[in-house]
Amino acid sequence: MRENQLKRKLQRGEVVLGLFVNCSYPGFVEICGHTGFDFAIIDLEHGPLHPLVAENLCRAADCVGIAPLVRVGKNDSLHIQRALDIGSAGVQVPQIETKADAEACVRSAKYSPLGSRGLSFYTRAGVYTAAGAQITDKLNEESLVVIHVEGIRGVENLNEIVSVPHIDVIFLGPYDLSQSLGIPGQVRDPRVMDLMHQCIDTIRNAGKIVGTYADNPEVAKQWIDAGIQYIALGVDVGIFLRACQGLVKAIRTEA
Rank of each mutant, 00 (worst) to 15 (best):
Q81V: 07
S163I: 02
V155F: 14
S88M: 04
V53R: 12
P165Y: 08
V164W: 02
V127A: 14
A54F: 00
I170M: 06
E150S: 12
P174H: 02
E55P: 04
D137F: 01
G154W: 08
D137A: 14
T136W: 03
A109K: 00
S143D: 11
H50R: 13
L57S: 07
A102G: 09
G90L: 06
V72Y: 00
I80W: 00
T98M: 07
G115H: 08
P165V: 02
H50G: 10
E55V: 06
V169P: 03
E142R: 03
G126H: 08
G73L: 14
G118Q: 09
K110N: 01
R59M: 09
P48I: 15
I161E: 02
V146N: 06
R71K: 08
T123S: 13
L84F: 05
E141Y: 05
N75L: 11
L172Y: 12
N157L: 12
I161P: 14
K138F: 07
D101L: 06
Y128D: 13
V146W: 05
Q92A: 09
V70H: 02
N159H: 15
R117D: 03
P51D: 08
G115Q: 13
Y111V: 05
V72W: 00
I86E: 00
Q134V: 10
I135V: 15
F121V: 14
R153S: 12
T136G: 04
G115T: 01
V164M: 09
L78K: 01
V70G: 01
S120E: 11
L84W: 03
L69D: 14
A125G: 09
A130G: 12
Q81A: 13
V70S: 01
I96K: 01
S143M: 15
T136R: 05
Q134T: 06
L158K: 11
I161S: 12
N56M: 14
D85L: 10
L139C: 12
V169H: 02
L69E: 04
I147Q: 03
N75M: 10
S143V: 09
E97Y: 01
L144P: 03
L158F: 07
R107M: 07
L139V: 04
P174E: 09
R59C: 06
D168T: 01
D168S: 10
N140E: 04
F171M: 09
V106D: 01
Q95V: 05
V169L: 12
A104F: 00
I161F: 09
N75R: 11
E156V: 05
G126F: 07
G73T: 13
P94F: 01
H79E: 05
C58E: 08
S108C: 06
R71E: 02
G73W: 05
R124P: 06
C63R: 06
V93C: 08
G132W: 03
D62H: 14
Y122F: 15
N157P: 14
I66P: 01
T123Q: 09
G173Q: 12
K74N: 10
G47K: 03
R107Y: 03
S88F: 00
F121E: 14
V93F: 05
V146A: 13
A102K: 02
E156W: 11
